[in-house]
Design a protein around this nucleic acid. Structure first.
Lengths: 214, 214
DNA sequence: AGACTAATTCAACGTCCGTTGAAACGCAAC
DNA sequence: GTTGCGTTTCAACGGACGTTGAATTAGTCT
C-alpha cells in the first residue's frame, strides 16, 4: 500500500492550506482538516508530527517554487542587462509579476497559499519570523539589484520602500473582497491582470520619488 | 457597587485587545483574556454577550476616535483650500498622518488596536466585511477628495491605488518586526516618524503616476 | 501461501473550551 | 438595618480539542 501515501499526504496538505488560509492556524481544528481531506483524524499524526508541523509543511510545500520563479525572473532581467543596470521598474516586475502570473494562470492552486502568506505577513505572531525564514535570501538579492539601479539611494529609504511594496503586494494576495465592496464591483480582488498593470508602476514611481536624491 | 462596572469593562477590553492583536480571534481563549484582566471568567459574559461580541466591542471602542481624527484632518485640508483643489499628497497625508501620529505619540495605547486592524484587513475571513463596516464612509469621502484633485483619473485606477495604499499602511500597523530583521536593525517597525516621512510621498507619487492621463 | 511493512482505522485519554445558573458580595436608598 | 440592585465569585455543564496506542487493512517480496 506504499505508493498511496503521498497522494493522501497531498490531500491533507490541500485541505489544511484551504482552511488555514481562511481561518488562520488557531481557527482550524485537525478534525476539520481531516474531514475536508476525507481521511481519518489519526492519519494527520501518521504523516505529520503535530498540528504545528502540518502548518509548517503547508508553508514549505510551495515556498521553493515561489522562490524559483522569482529568481528566474531576476536572472532574466540581469541577462537582459549584461553591462548597464536594469530600471527599477524592471526589477520590481521581476519581483511581483511571477507571483501575479501564478495567481492569474492557476488561481485555484495558488489562491489559498497566497492568502495564507498575506495573513502571516501581517501577523505579529508569525510575520517577523516566518517571512524572514522563507523569503530573506530572495529579498536580499532583490534589494541588491535595486541598490545597483539606484546607486545614490540611502539604504534606509530602500528598506522602507520595500516595506510598502510588501504591504501592497500581500494585501493583493489576501483577496478579501474589500476592494470589491468599496468600488461597488468596479474592481475585483481576484483580477490579477488589473493588478499586474498597475502595481509595479505604482511601486516603481514610489521608489523613484523617495530614493532618488534630487 | 455601580461605578466600578465600567472600569472592569475597560480592563477586559484592554486585555482582549492585547491578546486578539497577537494571536487573532480564534487563538485566544476567554479564560486567557480574563486571567490577563485579573477577573473571573464569568464576568466576561456579564459585560458581553459572547466571545464574538467582546471581539466586536474591542473593534468598536476605538473606531469612532480613529474616524474622528481622520475626518478632522480632511476638514482642515478642505478649509485650507476653499476655492482650489488640494494636492493628492495633502489628501493622503490627511488620511495617514492622524493615525501615524496617534501611534507615535501614544504608542502603548494604540499599538495593539492597529495591529488588530492590520490582521483583519488581510484576513479573508474578516477583511471584506469588517473593514467595510467600520471605514467605508471615511474612505468614500477620501476617495471623493482624491477624485476632485485628479478630475481626469479613471475611477478604477483610483480604487486600485487606494488598495495599494491600504496594504502599505496596514502592514505598517502590524509591526511584525520583519523590516527590522531584513534591514538588520537599520529600520524599526515602530519608528512611525520614519514612516510619516516616506509613506505619504511614496503613495502620492504612485497615485500621480497611475492616475494622471498623460 | 505466508511474512513483512506501510497505510489506515477505531476508540479513547486527559484537558480545555465557551457558556451558564445560583449564590455571595458591596453599596445606596429608605 | 433591612431592602434592592448592580457586580462579582464559584462550580459546573456538555462538547470539542490535540494527540496516542493498538488493531486492521492492503500491497510487496520470498
Amino acid at each position: 500500500m506504499a505508493p498511496r501515501s503521498n497522494e493522501t499526504k497531498q490531500r491533507i496538505l490541500d485541505a489544511a492550506e484551504k482552511l488555514f488560509a481562511k481561518e488562520g492556524f488557531a481557527g482550524v481544528t485537525v478534525r476539520q482538516i481531516m474531514r475536508e481531506a476525507g481521511a481519518d483524524v489519526a492519519l494527520a499524526y501518521y504523516h505529520f508530527d503535530s498540528k504545528r508541523d502540518l502548518f509548517d509543511a503547508v508553508l514549505m510545500r510551495r515556498a521553493d517554487h515561489m522562490n524559483d520563479v522569482r529568481h528566474a525572473a531576476l536572472d532574466a532581467v540581469e541577462q537582459r542587462h549584461p553591462d548597464d543596470a536594469p530600471s527599477v521598474q524592471e526589477i520590481i516586475e521581476a519581483f511581483t509579476q511571477p507571483l501575479l502570473k501564478l495567481l492569474a494562470e492557476d488561481h485555484d492552486t495558488w489562491r489559498d497559499y497566497f492568502a495564507l502568506i498575506a495573513q502571516i505577513n501581517n501577523s505579529p505572531q508569525w510575520g517577523g519570523e516566518l517571512m524572514t525564514r522563507f523569503f530573506d535570501p530572495l529579498v536580499r538579492r532583490f534589494m541588491d539589484a535595486i541598490r545597483r539601479a539606484m546607486p545614490d539611494a540611502a539604504d534606509v529609504d530602500l528598506f522602507w520602500c520595500y516595506h510598502f511594496l510588501s504591504g501592497a503586494l500581500t494585501l493583493t494576495f489576501a483577496e478579501t473582497g474589500r476592494i470589491d465592496n468599496l468600488s461597488q464591483g468596479l474592481c475585483q480582488s481576484k483580477d490579477m491582470d488589473a493588478i499586474s498593470d498597475r502595481l509595479p508602476r505604482f511601486i516603481a514611481a514610489g521608489f523613484r520619488h523617495i530614493c532618488n536624491p534630487t
